[in-house]
């Protein structure tokens, strides 16, 4: 299937206006793995938050500019941040099916407001 056909099939898109970004760049999740000894031992996955302020937005918390609530899950989502000011806001990692993390850089004083263009991308 080519991209144009996929487009015509109706890949879903939303514009969400006025999202307040309070997450901080210094919010780092650093993955670790560890063993809890025992018989058997337990293999543990760890994702400790290290400082900063994490902001996670689930798609179903959002409403687009036409008043439509976004679905709970979006296949292979793409989230594009549309700035409203010179504040630098971005996604620190790839969005996932139910949401994404967003943050502003540390030079931005106070919360920042952005618009979001969210697109479903079922090309893969």
């Amino acid at each position: 299937m080519n991209g144009t056909l996929n487009y015509l099939r109706g890949g879903r898109r939303w514009i969400v206006a006025g999202v307040t970004v309070h997450g901080l760049e210094s919010s780092v999740d650093f993955p670790l793995v560890m063993t809890e000894p025992g018989d058997p031992a337990r293999v543990m996955f760890c994702l400790p938050p290290l400082g900063g302020q994490q902001q996670v937005i689930n798609f179903d918390q959002l409403t687009d500019i036409f008043g439509n609530p976004l679905p709970q899950a979006i296949i292979a989502p793409v989230v594009i941040v549309i700035p409203r000011s010179e504040a630098s806001c971005y996604l620190p990692d790839r969005p996932y099916e139910t949401g994404f993390r967003i943050c502003r850089d540390r030079q931005t004083a106070g919360d920042a407001v952005v618009d979001l263009f969210i697109m479903e991308n079922d090309l893969r």
Binding site: V33, R42, C46, L47
Partner: peptide, 8 residues
């Protein structure tokens, strides 16, 4: 997150 993945 602190999650059990498997036993070994």
């Amino acid at each position: 997150m602190y999650k059990l993945l498997d036993t070994s």
